Simulated scan of single mutants.
Amino acid sequence: MVRRIFKLCMEGYGPSQIANILEEDKILVPSAHYKSLGISYPAPVPENPYAWQSRTVADLLSHQEYLGHTVNFKTYKKSYKSKKKLQNDPSKWQIFENTHEAIIDQETFDIVQRIRDGRRRRTPMGEMPILSGMLYCADCGAKLYQVRAKGWTHDKEHLVCATYRKKGKHLCSSHQIRNVVVEEILLAQLKEITAYAREHEDEFIEMVTKSSAKIKEKEIRDSLKECEQSKARVSKLDTLIEKLYEDNVEGKISDERFMKMTTSYEAEQKQLEERVVELQKNILQIQERSANIDAFLNKVHQYTDIQELDAEIIRTFISRINVYAAEKVEGKRRQRIQIIYNCIGEFQPPKHKKTA
């Protein structure tokens, strides 16, 4: 049942639609299911044991327990006298990984979370565009903000950098790009990459493996460089603090000046030391990470003929889209976008290969 709910979400069904499907197929709600097994459950069995609620479906889609993990401290009580449970902030949860058999694999879970994060609600202007929440500014990292208006046709809808829109052009440029332009590029790229992966599978695997290795090597090299620079600065600050102490003892600087400067240096040191720990952890994660080519190929074989984009297809294949500032080249406007695919990262099929 859980696998089916996740599959329905991947197919583009929302919680309300999934709830209706489960009810029509006479699938017991969790409380009724547990009762049928003789297991106690905190919620009562409804009059209609097949009456699924959209909230129940949405909650199930976010449970990390289905990955094989144990999640503690999701709720708390204000005092031992209180019977009411309150929801804890996810940052306060304690997660113990791989404590039992997984029902859902990590890749499926991550895609479903992206679909849920980018879910589109009905508004007075209709459903939100399928690209909502997927595009990012390549310069400042902020999401691109969807711009729409009543009476606009789809070709007028566009996106701009949220930093530019909300904080001003002095912090970032607009990075404005029309929805239809991105959709046309995505459709063409997806058709090209899926066709190439199907028709030249061995070459595709080899290219992705090499590309992934190069990206990992660069990321590790950059992280190591920053780590060494941070360590050198920490050491330099030690020398500066020691010199300040000597100058203060000799009366060359006042106690007030000494305290102000040492406080500033120590704060910088602490920041740098924390960054070093973060970088070292990041290096280990990069070393352990590998392209999940099999997972990507499984998706390719599921979608053999992509003719039109929808939210499910976009979030199944794509992790994020980075949009660069537009430039004028020989009097013409040019704008680059970078597509980061799930499982394999950035990838461009070779141009000389003919794909159907």
Rank of each mutant, 00 (worst) to 15 (best):
K243E: 13
I283C: 02
L237K: 08
K281R: 01
G251I: 04
K236Y: 08
E256N: 13
E273H: 08
V276R: 04
T263A: 05
E266K: 15
R257L: 10
E250K: 01
V249C: 04
I241S: 02
V276P: 02
R257C: 01
T239A: 15
T263C: 03
K270H: 05
L279P: 05
V276N: 04
Q271T: 15
E250G: 00
N248G: 03
T263P: 00
A267S: 12
V277C: 03
L237I: 15
T262L: 07
L272R: 09
E274R: 15
N248D: 01
L279W: 04
E268P: 01
F258H: 09
T239E: 11
I253A: 06
S254Y: 06
K236H: 07
V276I: 12
L272T: 07
T239C: 07
I241L: 04
T239I: 13
D247T: 00
L237E: 00
V276E: 02
Q271W: 07
F258Y: 14
Q280T: 03
L279F: 07
E268K: 06
E268S: 12
I283N: 03
E274L: 15
K281P: 02
K252I: 10
V277S: 05
D255R: 12
L240F: 07
D255P: 01
Y245C: 06
Y265N: 00
Q271V: 14
M261L: 14
S264F: 11
Q269T: 12
Y265P: 01
N248R: 03
E246I: 13
I241T: 13
E273K: 15
K236D: 08
V249L: 08
K281T: 09
G251W: 02
V277I: 05
T262D: 06
A267W: 02
L244S: 10
I253T: 08
E246T: 14
E242I: 10
V277R: 05
N282M: 11
T262H: 03
M259D: 07
V276W: 02
L240M: 15
K270S: 09
V249D: 08
K281E: 05
M259F: 01
L244E: 08
L240T: 10
E274F: 12
